[in-house]
Design a binder for these strands. Structure first.
Lengths: 217, 217
DNA sequence: AGTTTGGTCGGGCAAATTTCCCGACCTGCA
DNA sequence: TGCAGGTCGGGAAATTTGCCCGACCAAACT
């Protein structure tokens, strides 16, 4: 019976809020071609659950402690480049949407959307398409009108400069000395920058900076 | 030739061994167009001394604790891209020579060389040329005969793989999981790799990996 | 004027990581 | 047969991170 039978869509639900998971599990299972095969309440469990269940679609809330939602997306995509991940978020800031897609998400739906939108989006990403709810599309469209060169737009003057020097290879102490700041402040910026850009590793940060032309190789 | 020799060549001497500094200061000051304007016994002091004295040439031993010699070179070159730094080392391994030039050194002389070689090298780098002692040249020439693609040659199989994944943005935990190692071992490798390549910062490591084609951006 | 907003700057502190050193186990090679 | 070197991880002190907080200041509102 384990053969490719019912042509259904297997789903992994990731959200740190049990009640929310329950609610949406109910909604999703109302569709008779949907099967919620697993749930997870954090990034690590999401990764594990993905490995053991290999669902067709991962529906994931990324606003979990530690910006770990983005991390989870990257982890999963690193393991399986074909993984379909649909982000299901409370917010729809352009930066977060971009970060999600940048991390490898296939879709982005806000929690304010109609269930029908979520369901349609799941079917879309299951087919390998990209999907996003109307409000997200509107925000992104608006964003694309204003001059935006990258995910670094969300960073302030100081943050950019610190990222630049950091990516260039400078130590935090050196940066602090160059900018006449305390090492602590530079550390705080470093943390802030990672949080804002959704990068989890220093290496990712450097790559981002290089990609955005902030640092020349 | 209308050379600028009115002021002679000002020199900053960097070595963690006071006796060695004293000895070479004496040798160098025997040349009446040489002026040793400052000394330093570690990387941090070298950087400070360079900033306050802006010498024509920095003569530096790079075998100081923490591989900080290379760091000092990078720091100084970051501050002043025209800085002339002559490395004066005990060893002449190809890897170290390459690391030094890679960091921005203009010359490399071993401590086993004749004083005349050091003096000639100082004049060379002061003129903006590159210089190295005969033994160093021989080692490098030999190295250039065998297929060598980069500073990564000194790394073993495992180290390369770990560096690759690290530069790709993976967490140490992920790398450990991927390679079936303990996190501790990956941390140790990470440390080892930085030590071997002379990179002080994760960012520098990433740049190195990208430059060497280990990681595609 | 008064207030909200947002960038800049740093303290605090538990938890995690780095740094460096060490021993053990293989394998190849002299 | 011995030893050099790559691989793997423990240990422990020092440092850094992650996350939270308050303070200052300037610009943009109301």
């Amino acid at each position: 019976m384990t053969t490719v039978t019912t042509r259904g869509i297997s789903i992994l639900l990731v959200d740190d809020h049990p009640v929310v998971r329950q609610g949406y599990r109910r909604v999703l299972e109302h569709q008779d071609d949907f099967r919620v095969v697993a749930e997870a309440d954090n990034a690590a469990n999401a990764y594990r659950a993905f490995k053991s269940h290999e669902p067709d679609v991962v529906v994931m809330d990324i606003s979990m402690p530690g910006a770990s939602g983005l991390e989870a997306i990257r982890n999963i995509r690193a393991r399986d480049a074909d993984a379909r991940i649909l982000v299901f978020s409370m917010h729809s800031e352009a930066a977060q949407v971009k970060a999600a897609f940048g991390a490898g998400a296939s879709g982005f739906v806000t929690k304010g959307s109609e269930p029908a939108e979520l369901i349609a989006a799941i079917r879309s990403v299951a087919r390998g398409e990209h999907a996003m709810s109307d409000d997200v599309a509107r925000v992104l469209a608006l964003e694309s009108l204003v001059p935006t060169r990258s995910a670094l737009d969300q960073l302030g003057e100081r943050e950019i400069e610190i990222l630049r020097q950091f990516a260039a290879g400078s130590t935090k102490e050196q940066i602090a000395a160059n900018l006449n700041l305390s090492t602590k402040t530079v550390q705080n910026y470093h943390y802030l920058i990672k949080a804002k850009t959704g990068m989890r590793t220093d290496a990712q940060l450097v790559r981002l900076a290089v990609e955005c032309g902030l640092a020349n190789l």
